[in-house]
Nucleic acid binder design. Structure first.
Length: 418
RNA sequence: GCACCGGUGGCGGAGUGGUCAAUCGCACCUCGCUGUAAACGAGGCGACCUAUGGUCUUCGGGGGUUCGAAUCCCUCCCGGUGCA
């Protein structure tokens, strides 16, 4: 299923291929997120041809709520339903235990500012939590407005209609079998970045127990049509702590998974370090997916540290919110992105990124896209999403070529000014 | 010509003697977004200063009443409606 073609001599990175029933993924690769069986604002044809994506990743929780498992089955599975003929992933729904649970309403993401790095941001979060009376809530279980975790599974409220639902490792895998993606993820618990080490350990151990249950259920489901064709990836947790990360990678790495996901919360700016710990412990002959991480700088450093595939909502989300990636400034004082809604771009008739050769940059100007945003036209999101996704997809492709050709150092230097 | 209603910050529109440099919405200016609760969220938006405070100038123009006016009175200008 996974084949390594080339490796870095002075790093953990590798170039390879993941073979699936719906085609091959050349790695490293960026996988666009299509949570509800759609990459927001794009047609599958744009995702394939304009973006050049090899695979997409959908979400079990969201598809289970809407349109529901039965519709996916009747449609003949995710591929047919959304008219995407290439490889697909589904996330297990475990992340929603975090985003709809501990993180709900707190304005926090899984990326934590390192202490002292941005005290204002930290203070803002704390104040927000105090204002909402949430500080210090919950003890043994992670709970929030829409999700509550216990040892057996997670109880959810639908964000659509408030109805109650429950996921367990078994039910998550069962639903993922019905959806029929080529690569599916074990059901895990993503602990909040503000959780203490004790809780991170607890969530990690729970994730390990759930991992075993996922494997058992997956392997026992021989009668089901999709099960044997689907690759099951286990998820490493452990938060920002090296000992937990290594412990988790060893435990998950020893289980009978087809590949691995690295999930959970990280210290901002230190993702690559944590990724390195994990990849040092994981078996080399299976693919590694970094869940939910994918800013350009993270891609470059993640690839260097042994990641094969990435998914991330950032390219499409910031696109819809008016920001576009540009090559200059990545990882340095420049931000590596521009906010097209800033006044300066209203009459800037250059392409979004002068160095980019995507469909948007070849045909449209910053001023035009800026106008679309101000006018609240849908095309703004489409054109900017095409650019941002092309940017990260292409970045991973360039990295792959650089690994194969032995020019990764030069590749890295082109983007990151050191 | 007479009568009535109305003129508030870029726009719309609150306020109708002190707690008003003036609620709110839009626009505008920034910032943030990392397994999508997200085409979203946050902050700013008269000027100046020895800034968790102070000073000055603002509610069509001018004048007045009052300790104090966007708010009351007089007058002028402008807009709308009605009657001749």
């Amino acid at each position: 299923m996974f084949k390594i073609e080339a490796k870095l001599t002075n790093g953990r990175g590798r170039a390879g291929t993941i073979t699936t029933p719906h085609g091959t993924i050349e790695t490293p690769a960026f996988i666009p997120v299509g949570t509800k069986a759609t990459v927001k604002s794009l047609t599958p044809e744009l995702v394939r041809d304009a973006v050049g994506a090899q695979a997409v990743l959908a979400n079990t929780y969201h598809l289970y709520l809407q349109p529901g498992t039965d519709i996916l089955k009747k449609a003949g599975g995710l591929h047919k339903f959304m008219n995407w003929s290439g490889p697909t992933f589904t996330d297990s729904g475990g992340f929603q235990a975090f985003s709809l649970g501990a993180a709900w309403g707190k304005g926090i993401s899984k990326m934590k500012e390192k202490p002292g790095e941005n005290e204002q941001a930290q203070t803002r979060h704390i104040n927000k939590k105090l204002l909402e009376g949430r500080a210090g809530e919950d003890d043994s279980e992670t709970s929030g407005a829409y999700a509550k975790v216990d040892d057996d599974g997670v109880t959810f409220k639908s964000v659509i209609d408030g109805s109650s639902h429950r996921f367990t490792p078994e039910s998550s895998i069962e639903i993922q079998h019905a959806i029929g993606a080529d690569l599916i993820f074990a059901f895990d618990e993503c602990a909040a970045p503000d959780a203490d080490k004790e809780y991170q350990k607890k969530a990690m151990e729970r994730t390990h127990r759930w991992a075993k249950r996922c494997i058992e259920y997956h392997h026992s489901a021989n009668g089901r049509p999709n099960a044997q064709r689907q690759a099951l990836l286990g998820i490493v947790q452990g938060g920002p702590y090296e000992d937990l990360r290594r412990e988790s990678a060893r435990a998950i790495g020893a289980m009978d998974f087809d590949g691995f996901g690295i999930g959970g919360s990280f210290d901002k700016g230190d993702v690559a370090t944590a990724v390195g710990w994990v990849c040092d412990e994981l078996p080399e002959n299976k693919p590694r997916h970094l869940l939910g991480i994918g800013e350009p700088i993270d891609l470059i450093l993640g690839i260097e540290n042994g990641i094969d595939t990435f998914d991330c909502v950032a390219p499409t989300r910031i696109a819809r919110n008016g920001s576009a990636y540009i090559r200059s400034g990545i990882g340095k004082e420049g931000k590596g992105r521009i906010n097209l809604q800033n006044a300066e771009f209203a009459s800037d008739f250059a392409p979004i990124d002068p160095e980019c050769s995507c469909y948007t940059c070849k045909n449209y100007t910053r001023a035009y896209v800026a106008h679309l945003f101000r006018a609240k036209e849908m095309l703004a999101a489409t054109l900017t999403s095409v650019h941002n996704l092309y940017f990260v997809v292409n970045l991973a492709k360039e990295a792959r070529a650089a690994i194969v050709e032995g020019t990764f150092v030069e590749f890295k230097r082109r983007y990151i000014l050191t």
